[in-house]
């Protein structure tokens, strides 16, 4: 196999991955949905433990989430979520600051916690659901 060929074989996947990454980031920062509403979701150990609809919050609410390894304090308001206090060793979660976009999770690895804004869609096309 010639050297040039080898170079391409190496270069192309890397280039594709990088381009895809750039596109992914650009696309994920675009477009708020027209239908659907945002909920702040709290996942502990992978399971959804709480879901709070954000547009119904006139004031920010604060929640303390306790797990075996420690605690996290979360603030949720109409437009954003943040973890503002925690006793975890790395403090990656508090360093993340305030997140306003959907699907940008704030995670606390030692505490197995993920706080993220998700989109709930009433079935696109449906004008409402009774029940």
């Amino acid at each position: 196999m010639s050297d040039r060929k080898k170079l391409f074989i190496m270069l192309i996947p890397i280039a594709l991955i990088l381009i895809a990454s750039v596109l992914w980031i650009i696309l994920s920062h675009n477009g708020s949905p027209k239908s659907g509403y945002r909920v702040a979701c709290i996942y502990q150990n992978g399971a959804l433990t709480e879901e709070i609809r954000m547009d119904s919050l006139d004031q920010a609410i604060e929640k303390t989430i306790i797990c075996d390894q420690g605690f996290n304090r979360v603030r949720i308001d109409k437009t954003s979520v943040s973890v503002f206090e925690s006793d975890c060793p790395g403090k990656d979660c508090t360093a993340m600051g305030t997140v306003e976009s959907e699907y940008r999770p704030i995670s606390c690895l030692p505490h197995r916690l993920v706080v993220v804004i998700e989109l709930r869609d009433s079935d696109p096309g449906l004008d409402g659901v009774a029940g």
Binding site: S21, I25, N45, G46, P105, V116
Partner: peptide, 23 residues
């Protein structure tokens, strides 16, 4: 590993950022 520890699919949203910084 983060995916396993957090048991959440959300970790994959970090992937593009980590790919670019890794490069």
């Amino acid at each position: 590993v983060a995916r396993l520890l957090l048991a959440s699919e959300y970790v994959w949203t970090y992937l593009p950022y980590l790919m670019l910084s890794g490069a």
